[in-house]
């Protein structure tokens, strides 16, 4: 057999390489498009809350298979699966909008029990530990309580009343002789169920449940509150601190004992003067 005859039967290297490069290129384009969609999906809209026990959003999108079993087992029809182009959450994932139907915080947490994958983690065994979001009094200018009236609805409906929302009394400067009962959210107890937002009497709620990432700030890890640390330790945090004489306002301000001036607000414990 001559070389000319054998040649065409051998795979053409150039063609194989071209085909592979073409396929890889096409896949890269498809893959990039898909990756863009996947990454964009993390931008969960602020009013869309995940069911109790949901993993953090990035993990949730890798775990939730969008089967809707949590939706089916929710006795209050709170949850629904996001529809493409209608709801902002990633297509097919479960969410709820507090102002429409809040979470009723069932004791047996049926949505978590229904989840086959652990996207709603079974580690959540007490509904009070759920952190679907955090309530924030977003509009003090319209909140009736903040204006000095006694609406109190958000406080009354809160399933964790007096822990998640308290009414903090303060002086009403405007009237001069009334009190303001300020609804105050304590994030360490708020489950984000949304009952306060649902029942706010205003046409647009003044208290809203936001995703924790939006609702909360975060102290730097090395920050210590001096007064807390001192209480815990029973002594100043820094050892061997020298308590220098306080220079206080008042007559003869350089007087160490400050007679006739102001007394120091407190004395450092453990240091004799």
């Amino acid at each position: 057999m001559s070389a000319q005859q054998t040649r065409p039967s051998r795979p053409n290297r150039r063609r194989v390489l071209t085909d592979a490069a073409r396929a890889a290129g096409a896949c890269a384009i498809v893959g990039l498009g898909l990756a863009k969609v996947a990454v964009d999906a993390r931008a969960l809209p602020a009013q869309a809350l995940r069911p109790p026990g949901a993993l953090p959003e990035a993990d949730f999108l890798g775990t939730c298979i969008r089967c809707g079993l949590c939706v089916r087992d929710c006795p209050y029809d709170t949850l629904s699966l996001a529809e493409l182009g209608v709801d902002g959450a990633a297509t097919g994932t479960p969410f709820f909008v507090a102002r429409e139907v809040p979470c009723e915080m069932c004791d047996d947490i049926p949505c978590v029990a229904a989840c086959p994958t652990g996207a709603l983690t079974a580690e959540l065994d007490t509904i009070d530990d759920a952190r679907m979001g955090t309530a924030v009094l977003v509009d003090e200018e319209h909140c009736l309580n903040a204006l000095g009236l006694r609406c109190d609805v958000c406080y009354r409906v809160c399933p964790v009343i007096d822990k998640a929302i308290t009414l903090e009394m303060r002086h009403n400067v405007r009237s001069g002789h009334h009190a303001i009962f300020m609804p105050t959210v304590h994030a360490d107890a708020c489950t984000g169920c949304g009952k306060c937002e649902k029942s706010c009497v205003l046409p647009e709620a003044a208290i809203k449940v936001l995703p924790v990432r939006l609702a909360r700030g975060e102290a730097a890890e090395h920050y210590r509150l001096g007064w807390e640390e001192m209480e815990r330790k029973g002594a100043p945090v820094v050892e061997g601190i020298i308590d220098l004489p306080d220079r206080l306002p008042g007559p003869s301000t350089d007087n160490l004992a400050a007679p006739g001036g102001y007394e120091p607000a407190f004395k450092l414990p453990g240091i004799k003067q």
Binding site: L34, A35, V37, A38, V39, A41, A58, D59, L61, G62, T63, C64, I65, R66, A90, T91, G92
Partner: peptide, 9 residues
């Protein structure tokens, strides 16, 4: 991306 990618589309 750490997601179930195909389920988006």
């Amino acid at each position: 991306t750490g997601t179930i990618a195909w389920e988006f589309v």
